[in-house]
């Protein structure tokens, strides 16, 4: 499974939960719905990423960068 960060487009900024439901229905496991910043965190098979990118309301799907460190 791959952790992904899904950025919701501006037109759906007030419908983040709706986009999250679509992400879940597509087969991803939604791990966080961040209404305020318009982001959905999820895990999914890497093969599903392209499909998620085509969902209504999705601006971008990026594989999560995992190695954040103090700077």
């Amino acid at each position: 499974m791959t952790a992904v960060t899904i950025t919701v487009d501006d037109d759906h900024a007030n419908a983040v939960a709706e986009v999250a439901r679509a992400v879940g229905a597509a087969g991803a496991e939604v791990t966080a719905v961040l209404d305020t910043i318009g982001v959905v965190s999820a895990t999914c098979d890497r093969a599903l990423v392209e499909h998620l990118r085509r969902l209504p309301g999705v601006l971008a799907v990026e594989v999560e960068a995992t190695d954040y460190r103090p700077r």
Partner: peptide
């Protein structure tokens, strides 16, 4: 001293 993007984004959301 490490973190995942999901934690960081959740933190930003919480802060805002």
């Amino acid at each position: 001293g490490s973190g995942n993007e999901g934690w960081i984004l959740a933190g930003i959301d919480w802060a805002l």
